[in-house]
Design a protein around this nucleic acid. Sequence first.
DNA 1: TAACACCTGTAA
DNA 2: TTACAGGTGTTA
Length: 273
Amino acid sequence: MPELPEVETIRAYIDEKVSGRRIDDIRVCLPRLIKNSSAGDMKKTLIGRTITACSRRGKYLLLHTDGPYSLLIHLRMTGSLIYDAGGGEEIRAQRIVFLLDTGKLIYRDIRTLGCLWLVPSAGLTHIKGYDTLGPDGNSPEFTTAYVYPRLKGTHRRIKSFLLDQTQVAGLGNIYVDEALFRAGIRPSRRCNHISRVTAGRLCDAVHAVLAEGLAHGGTTIRNFVGGSGREGNNQDYLRVYGREGQPCLVCGTEIRYVKQAGRGTHYCPHCQT
DNA sequence: TAACACCTGTAA
DNA sequence: TTACAGGTGTTA
């Protein structure tokens, strides 16, 4: 469940549930998900510490503690965080479980592609993907003035640019397709062929699709997420993603599906040029 | 920039 | 059986 609106929805929920909770024990069912330390080191470092907050940048979550190290998490394709107050039904695919002074924080992940890192609570994390993130796509720094010169400087296809987290953080396959539809841009367009005016439309579209996703609590498809509190309903508002073969909501032309950069890509051949 | 790798589950 | 899935890092 991993683009910015979904991760932010989880962040708000986890922040509310676990801030102020102390980590009493950790059950590491799948140690290879911890990328820069052993299960033993993680336990030694985090047990006894109190979680102070949960923050987010791009698609990364950071569980802050009152100790020298905090926990950085990337959910990749199928990761999720669930707070279990106890008494609920059994949760499948539990990979790492933090036993708290009240309840449990469960890292669940079907495909086990997610990553966890122990990082310094202050300063750089030295995790490359995190330290090099561009501005969040819904942040005030993501403006036409920021993005237009970057588009001018590259011959890449626009979809691949928008998926590049060092350029703009938080977009994934769904919201990129949605933003390009709203901006009227083909996913295959070369960045340096996009005018300043069109770049402005794109910037507005990125802000709009992320804001809408957030307002709807994220997009929930394929029932990947179970448990409490995190199913969004933005899937009911998507305009192109997953609508291949159906009529464009603006002009009625059939929405097309192609592979681009290895990703399923949806667009309207009439509205997007 | 494309292919593949990392994984498991589901649908065609 | 095969293709595909909300991601990203490495390799040809």
